[in-house]
Design a protein around this nucleic acid. Structure first.
Lengths: 331, 331
DNA sequence: CACCAGTGGGTAATCGATGTCACGCGCGTT
DNA sequence: AACGCGCGTGACATCGATTACCCACTGGTG
């Protein structure tokens, strides 16, 4: 299976021709006689020859590899996005390399810079920074996911964060809630910021002023998240409902609610997750399919790699509210 | 940030020396005079030179890239393993490429074969096949995770599947259960097979014969999993407890139990998952940390890459029963 | 009959970095 | 004074595949 590395010259020798002609056959150049082509092909299969992707990349200046850069590989949302991208890429013999920014702008720059020196064919990135103009000189197509490109014309596959948050809030309002809290993490990340804006817009539209303490930021620290939620539930004016800005936050908030027996608090999560429907009550979510987002992004990138000339486009993936119980609790 | 590709020869020219000497400086060869070294270093920083990893790999014959091959990138267990590996690798400027086998032996071969032609520095693999002798000629270190190497001396980071299954069964037995069912998927995969063996060994040891219908195999099809569980609960002699062989199966089984209101059935899962402790009742698990497994595997591989000579070793990650309620229900 | 176009195929340069090897210089030996 | 040695250095080959460019041969044409 792992051969003593065969080179093109050996194939050529066996086929009694030059490396150039062998190369032509392999790359489907038509200007080779049928007889020669035949000989080369036999030699290829006989020796189990496979071109060295490295040497090929060096010469051609491109590589059959795409990079996917996300916050964290193990984030339940990105995990599924990556899974779908990898599936589509592997079917086309394209290799996927992954890297995570850990939501650090500085690290994102390091990672992208390192990638620029590899000759990747394309990039799919969930960026945590807010200026991508320096990527303008990149010689490969880029598709942004989850967060839009700023200062750069590029494809993006997004969900309408504001609309989604609004949908969640309106859902809670419709079930009689007025004291609704927002749980999010890092506000310097566009996704969270936009969802907070949507939340606040929906609240104002309903004529409700949200007290400051109702907007909770939990850092990725597990314990801090727990404390933040506990503080929220210890307020004099307790919220009767919570909107969680993303899956990560939901995964931190819900165990606390369950542990403290506060499942009477209504809850809507932006982003679905495993077991959401098995909890008691089932967790209502604003659903956006990570697989769909991955597929749309990969499709866009692969089409560009296949040579299609496309104008930069922002694709918005659909959102829907899945009512499972927790979002329909009465205040 | 993305420079118009600077080559070593340009650095050399600016430093008024040869490419070879410039290369020496960059690779820390001591046999360069301080003055020359200085000139080259200035040229490097001035031009923002970074060696082309591709060309370097071609010449050196190795690449600072490790491959991780697992069943499915989005599997909740492997996701976390990958996250940890990626974290450790990136800290050392090593790139990670991922690929999934989708649990198909044939695909695993294709993927590994493709990898063999890239010049990866190392491989971490959760194999679904049962003969790895063909990897003997691989020129890079390999660490197996989750499933051991067969026909090949190599490092492996495993959990004791039989012992874990036994622990789960004994836990259920201790709480009075005798009618215990096994839920697993693909028996051709060693992990599942071993856990079934452990299950059966523990049952026999307790003098209990498990009826055939108590051993359920669900294919990764969601609907089939659901039906299998429903059939199990429709038996005349219903089991009072279920042991699930892995997270994937738990994620298929539990929603069915909850939807049909059969949370009176005791349940132990091999492998923890998000929200397990927030369900009602909390899900008892045999816990093995994916992060720890990832870390152990990556550490082993990175140490080999750093040149340490180590004998092939099988490392067994610890297991523990986390009692959260579902495994302590009375029959 | 000499010339031109078209087709199949070879030679050598190239991609960018690194290993091989030999060279020149200064210095200590005998 | 000739020799040898070590050190810093650079010209050149090399990794494996692709490509720019050139050549040989065939057949048709003026």
């Amino acid at each position: 299976m792992i051969m003593p590395r065969i080179k093109l010259s050996e194939v050529a020798r066996l086929a009694r021709t030059s490396t150039k002609t062998a190369s032509r056959v392999i790359n489907g150049d038509p200007r080779v006689s049928a007889a020669t082509r035949e000989r080369v092909q036999r030699a290829v299969t006989e020796l189990h020859y496979r071109p060295d992707p490295l040497a090929r990349s060096l010469r051609r200046g491109t590589d059959d590899t795409i990079a996917v850069v996300v916050d964290e590989v193990s984030d339940p949302f990105f995990t599924r996005v990556i899974g779908e991208i990898e599936r589509m890429a592997l079917d086309r013999d394209i290799t996927v390399i992954v890297a995570s920014t850990r939501r650090l702008a500085e690290r994102e720059r390091t990672v992208l810079d390192g990638l620029a020196h590899r000759r990747i064919a394309g990039l799919i990135v969930a960026s945590v920074t807010d200026d991508h103009s320096y990527l303008r000189s990149a010689h490969y197509p880029i598709v942004f996911i989850d967060r839009e490109a700023i200062g750069l014309e590029a494809d993006a596959v997004l969900v309408d964060d504001r609309a989604g948050a609004r949908m969640a809030v309106e859902h809670l309002l419709a079930h009689g809630h007025r004291r609704i809290a927002f749980v999010g993490d890092r506000l310097d990340i566009a996704t969270v910021r936009n969802r907070l804006e949507g939340f606040q817009a929906a609240m104002s539209a309903a004529g409700i002023t949200t007290p400051e303490e109702y907007v909770v930021h939990m850092e990725p620290q597990l314990t801090e998240g727990r404390h933040a939620v506990e503080r929220l539930l210890a307020l004099d004016e307790q919220p009767t409902a919570i909107f969680s800005a993303n899956t990560r936050c939901s995964l931190l908030t819900l165990p606390t609610l369950h542990r403290t027996g506060r499942t009477d608090v209504a809850f809507v999560s932006f982003g679905d997750f495993a077991m959401a429907d098995a909890l008691t009550p089932g967790v209502s979510v604003v659903n956006h399919s990570p697989e769909l987002i991955g597929r749309l992004a990969a499709d866009r990138l692969l089409r560009r790699l296949a040579g299609e000339k496309l104008a930069a486009e922002t694709i918005t993936a659909p959102l829907e509210v899945l009512a499972r119980g927790s979002g329909e609790l009465a205040p």
